[in-house]
């Protein structure tokens, strides 16, 4: 799980062009959207593709993603439970 969280942070930084950020800047329980990291709905769509590409999880409804992408922790939990690769 710990590795997965670190891996996710790196992917998030890369996929979303968070140029000035280091994995250490993102806390596991920090809100990714809104007041936390400040991601938006376009980022959510990018993360949906990331889930499919890296973990074989296909989401069909963007609304579903809100809970999953709450934090790195919630993403990791969801991936652990649903990953196909």
């Amino acid at each position: 799980m710990k590795n997965l969280q670190a891996e996710l942070k790196e992917s998030i930084i890369e996929q979303l062009n968070l140029e000035d950020m280091e994995p250490g800047d993102i806390k596991n329980d920090e809100a990714l959207f809104g007041d936390g990291l400040g991601l938006d709905s376009i980022d959510a769509l990018e993360l949906i593709v990331l889930l499919e590409k890296d973990y074989g999880i296909k989401l069909t409804d963007p609304a579903q993603s809100r809970e999953i992408f709450k934090s790195v922790n919630s993403m990791a939990e969801f991936i652990e439970a649903n990953r196909t690769k």
Partner: peptide, 9 residues
């Protein structure tokens, strides 16, 4: 396949 939308937008 697995195309992301940001650059399209």
């Amino acid at each position: 396949q697995l195309v992301t939308p940001t650059s399209f937008i």
